[in-house]
Amino acid sequence: MIVAERKPFDEILSMIGNARKVLILGCGSCVTVCMAGGEKETQLLASTIRLSDKKQNITRELRCATIERQCDKEFFAAVANDVKWADIIVSMACGVGVQFCGEVFTDKEVVPALNTKFYGATVEQGVWSERCVGCGDCVLFKFGGICPIARCSKSLLNGPCGGSQNGMCEVDPENIQCGWQLIYDRMAAIGRLDLLEQNQPLKNWSTGRDGGPRRVVKEDATL
């Protein structure tokens, strides 16, 4: 899923500025799962804004709504009236949802309440970590199912640098595991260390972000 976390309150408040009718729009998909922008989080944000406004003697109306997801157009219809009412939409979706919300409601200002972080997984309750960078040309079969591009701080393809110690990466020895230690251990466990002896050539990065904004067309699904 896409993992995000909420921006600091003050930053959100400054984006809202003087808007007096504010729609806080949650997203029911990834960011609900990672507890950053689902229904509960819209309520918490709204409550905090109301308390802050009361303290500052600001009169402002807030509405909360959460749709199935903000990356498909059809779900926005459910909040069309709220959007019409609002001066500004605070989207609690990932960066994709924020932009798409603006593409659907072209005459409204849409601001992000979250910082979108990465494609990741829930490693334990309340903890998410990165697994994929969307390079567009999956190489997991060469590395025992562990991605050196996403999990090595330097995206090295031919083995660990000198900064690997006790299984951890020197960039943050407390929190970042050495991706190459993980790859090595996995390859040893499945008896495929031979694969790691092959020299990996220069990677073609053009399938990733470096090739410009990307698009996928699945012909049999188009209308």
Partner: peptide, 14 residues
């Protein structure tokens, strides 16, 4: 001297 030690000579060979 870095880890994994067993990989160090493989890396030299590469």
């Amino acid at each position: 001297f870095a880890d994994p030690f067993e990989f160090r000579v493989i890396r030299l060979a590469k």
